[in-house]
């Protein structure tokens, strides 16, 4: 019984480590996709957020301010994506791909310029990291320590899901943004400014992705490295599609990915199963769930199509 409880604690702990960056980025992706703009550039926006977050923390020592700055750095690239795709009607996949090259390139360039040519940032001390509210309350290695003593921004990600869900389904802005992603012409006919809505949504998607990236360098680890964001952005995009483009669906998808990471940790104890099979767990579980329970995800009708007023 003790082993089961302790293993359960580890699975929850692993989920809380792996999931928050994905969840922030997935919420960002929801905004962009639902308003009708494909955002492949999540990965790049996360990387710049990760870099800016840790650098600001290194110089100011203020974790929440740094977290916010990481988000704002992502928002700047969101703005770039919005200018390209909304104002100029550029191909959204190309613009997003360009951001995935540009943002990490810029982060590494700035890192080398700031820290004597080193592509790794110096690591920040514990006080500059996002706080853990219940640090030292429970004994090390206990169930409650593993479950409750993680970074507060991890729990905040779940609050963010609630907020985004409320915005999407209970506010006028939410209804308009969903409409802009389904039938922008009809929106425009009714006097809604589709450009403005898409701008706000794409910038918000950059902001939330930036927060996801900043979480990695301000909580998961404590320094920036060139390969600090490897694929999380794309997993977040997959989670949004998996969750049928809704914030709560994306959360469940992220939860599944997180749980699988936890199962990997448990399953690899004692090395009874081949590590390569264990590494496959998240992907196998995803495919099975997708086929058996989720079914067809309906893409917002106007997703990826630039809106032109004159049409």
């Amino acid at each position: 019984m003790d082993t089961i409880i302790s293993d359960l604690g580890l699975v929850i702990n692993a989920t809380l480590i792996a999931m928050p960056p994905l969840l922030y980025a997935a919420l960002g992706s929801c905004f962009s996709e639902r308003s009708g703009v494909i955002n492949i550039g999540i990965e790049g926006m996360m990387t710049i957020g990760a870099f800016v977050g840790v650098v600001v923390a290194y110089f100011t020592g203020n974790p929440w301010f740094s977290f916010l700055c990481g988000g704002l750095a992502g928002a700047v690239f969101g703005l770039l994506h919005a200018v390209a795709c909304v104002s100029f009607g550029a191909d959204q996949t190309i613009s997003g791909t360009a951001i995935n090259f540009l943002a990490p390139g810029l982060a590494i360039f700035l890192c080398k310029a700031m820290f004597d040519g080193s592509s790794d940032s110096p690591s920040i001390d514990t006080a500059s990291k996002l706080p853990r509210l219940l640090d030292g309350v429970f004994p090390v290695g206990s169930f409650w320590n593993n479950v409750l003593n993680t970074y507060s921004a991890a729990y905040l990600a779940f609050v963010a899901v609630l907020v985004v869900w409320f915005v999407f389904y209970k506010t006028r802005f939410g209804m308009r943004l969903r409409a802009a992603g389904e039938h922008p012409e009809a929106c425009a006919t009714l006097g809604i400014n589709v450009f403005r809505i898409r701008y706000i949504c794409v910038i918000l998607s950059g902001f939330l992705s930036g927060l996801g990236g900043a979480y990695v360098t301000l909580a998961t680890v404590s320094q920036f490295r060139p390969a600090i964001i490897v694929g999380q952005g794309f997993i977040a995009i997959a989670a949004v599609i998996f969750g049928k483009f809704s914030p709560h669906g994306a959360m469940l998808a992220c939860l599944l990915f997180g749980l699988c990471t936890g199962l990997r940790t448990i399953a690899s104890q004692g090395n009874w199963i081949s590590p390569n099979l264990i590494s496959m767990i998240p992907y196998v579980v995803t495919v099975i769930t997708l086929v058996l329970f989720v079914g067809h995800a309906r893409v917002p009708a106007a997703n990826g199509k630039p809106f032109e007023k004159s049409k």
Binding site: N13, A14, I17, A18, N146, T220, V221, T261, G262, S268
Partner: peptide, 9 residues
């Protein structure tokens, strides 16, 4: 890094 962290935990 996430897996490294949870395995160490």
């Amino acid at each position: 890094t996430a897996t490294g962290k949870s395995m160490a935990t």
